[in-house]
Amino acid sequence: MSVNQISVFLENKPGTLSEMTKVLAEAKIDVRAMSLAETRDFGIVRMIVADVYEAMNSLKEADFICSLTSVLAFEITDEPGGLGKIVDGFTQAGVNIEYMYASLSGKHTGQAYMIFRVADTKAAEAFLVGKGYIPLTQEDIAGI
């Protein structure tokens, strides 16, 4: 089960990111994970939010260009080697990871969330489920 990631185009100049976070704050959007990829003159913010529909609407209304991308989200044990195990899983499935980012969920839970964008979401998911890794659903994300 993949989840929807929101990608937002940002011009590379001071203030654009804060403008975007202001829009999200006003719409009361909880951001679960976020990363920023940059080139010389523009950037893409990628994020996982609790309410995708509401977030997309408020961003579009504020004239941000954004799109949805399917990504896989897993809960992993927050301990040395925790990430390595699941990455090995992708290797064994023969699926290339295009990018990934993390959301650490606090000191005491002992869990972390990893977001993966891969070349073949279905193949990776099928293989990892077989290994006992259950991807998070959109509902799981909303409930975190």
Binding site: Q5, S7, F9, A37, T39, F42, I44, R46, I65, C66, S67, T69, E98, R117
Partner: peptide, 14 residues
């Protein structure tokens, strides 16, 4: 940038 031209893939945009 237009919604039609935008993609999540940096390489494609470049």
């Amino acid at each position: 940038m237009t919604p039609e031209m935008f993609t999540d893939n940096l390489g494609e945009i470049e």
